[in-house]
Design a protein around this nucleic acid. Sequence first.
RNA 1: CGACACCAUUUCAG
DNA 2: CTGAAATGGTGTCG
Lengths: 154, 154
Amino acid sequence: MSEKSEARPNVVIFCDGGCKPNPGAGAWAAILRYGEKEKELTGGERETTNNRMELTAVTRALEELKVPCSVRIVTDSEYIANAFRQKWIDNWKRNGWKTASKEPVKNKELWVTLDALIAKHLVTWEWTRGHAGHPENERCDELATETRMKLFGC
Amino acid sequence: MSEKSEARPNVVIFCDGGCKPNPGAGAWAAILRYGEKEKELTGGERETTNNRMELTAVTRALEELKVPCSVRIVTDSEYIANAFRQKWIDNWKRNGWKTASKEPVKNKELWVTLDALIAKHLVTWEWTRGHAGHPENERCDELATETRMKLFGC
RNA sequence: CGACACCAUUUCAG
DNA sequence: CTGAAATGGTGTCG
C-alpha cells in the first residue's frame, strides 16, 4: 500500500534453464508478462551448467526492464529462489563470497550481476516444482530445449 | 600383440534381460560365440528387476568360460556398460559401495560376482542401443521373452 | 545429512 | 503420444 510500490509497473517473469549433458551444451528461456503484453527470451551456451543457465534466464529477463518495477519471479530452481528468500546471498556478501563450508561460492559473477539488477526492483520470489504442470514453466522448458537443439543440434 | 592376449580364446557375448512388469517376472538370455560355435543360455526369476536380469545375463555367460579369454561383451544396458567403461565400479569399491549421491549401490552381490568374473578375462565392453536392429541383441530379447512366457505365462 | 535442478540408459504400462 | 520403475551421473546450496 506504499506510494512507492503503487508507482511501479507490475511484471511477472517465468524462467527456466537446462543443460545436456550437465555440464555441457545449455540453454535458457524466460517469459516476461506486463499486463496483456508478453515477451519471450531465449539463448544458449556451448559449455555451461544447469545452474548457470537458470541464473542467466532470470538475469536476462530483468535486463529487459527499463524502469523500476514490482516483479514476481517464478523459477523451479531452489538454488536461486533460496539464495534470495533464505538470504544466502547476504551471508555470501558478508563473508567474502564463501559458502557455509568456507568454499568459494560458484558462479559469483552471475550472482553479483543478478543481485545488482534485483536491487533496482521490488522483487518477490516464487518457487514452483519443475515438471508439475505449471504452464509457463513448461513453456520455458520447451523454449530452452528448442533453442539448445537449434544452436547445438542436441 | 602381446603373448598374453594371443594365448586367449576370443569370445563374444551378447546379452539382454527384461522384466514384466518392472519390478516383477523377469528373464534373461545370452549368446556365447567362440569361432563357429555358439551357445544360447537363458533363465528367469519370478520377482526381480530389469537391471538384475541384465546383470544376470552377463554373469551367467561369463560363468561358462572355463579358461581365461578375450571377451567382447555386447549389452544394451548402459547401467552395466558404464559401470565398467566409466569406472563406476572402481568408485563403488573405493568408497564402500556408495553411489555418487551417497546411497548404497543396488544389487551389490551381483556386481561383486560379476566383477570377480571379469577379472579373470580380458574384457571389452560394447554398448548397443536397444531395439535398434542389432541381430544378436534382438535374438536375446526374443529368447528372454520366450523364457519369461514359458516360466511365468506372461 | 537434506533440498532443488539438470541429464543418461534400460525395462514396462496405457 | 501419455504415464512410471529400475539405475547411474553432475550442478549447487544449507
